[in-house]
Amino acid sequence: MSTPARKRLMRDFKRLQNDPPQGVNGSPNPDNIMQWNAVIFGPEDTPWDGGTFKLTLEFTEEYPNKAPVVKFKSTMFHPNIYADGGICLDILQNQWSPIYDVSAILTSIQSLLCDPNPNSPANSEAARMYSENRREYNRRVKEVVEGSWTESVD
């Protein structure tokens, strides 16, 4: 059945295919348009370079009035990403608005990778390291980049 949320998600998908932003990709499950899988590639010339990070996006019928639940399935090491893959990003929470589509969500998460906000950490170890020992932080990031190549995320 076509609902406003599903109709909108089809449009989001079409835009993602016709006008793909650099370094991100996503598509709905063939049998359920409310469940998406996505990949974010680590931005070049950053410690995240080369990483292929997998995520899921779960939408409800209230989309785009309500944000989807977005989670990393790949293991991450980042000040604003929780151990369970949940993401602390303002536009996915209190600053969500219907002007964002899947493409905008993914590119925002991509830019969060290199621009963390350690002020209110979801991963306090990563936040502290990011501020106090950037070299060690970068080393840990490289580890998750390498992990992302082989990790099975089913």
């Binding site: 000040p79 990003l89 303002d90 929470q93 209190n94 600053q95 925002s108 969060l112 906000n117 209110s120």
Partner: peptide, 8 residues
């Protein structure tokens, strides 16, 4: 509130 998370 906007500061409590990673920001756009």
């Amino acid at each position: 509130a906007g500061d409590s998370c990673g920001s756009h």
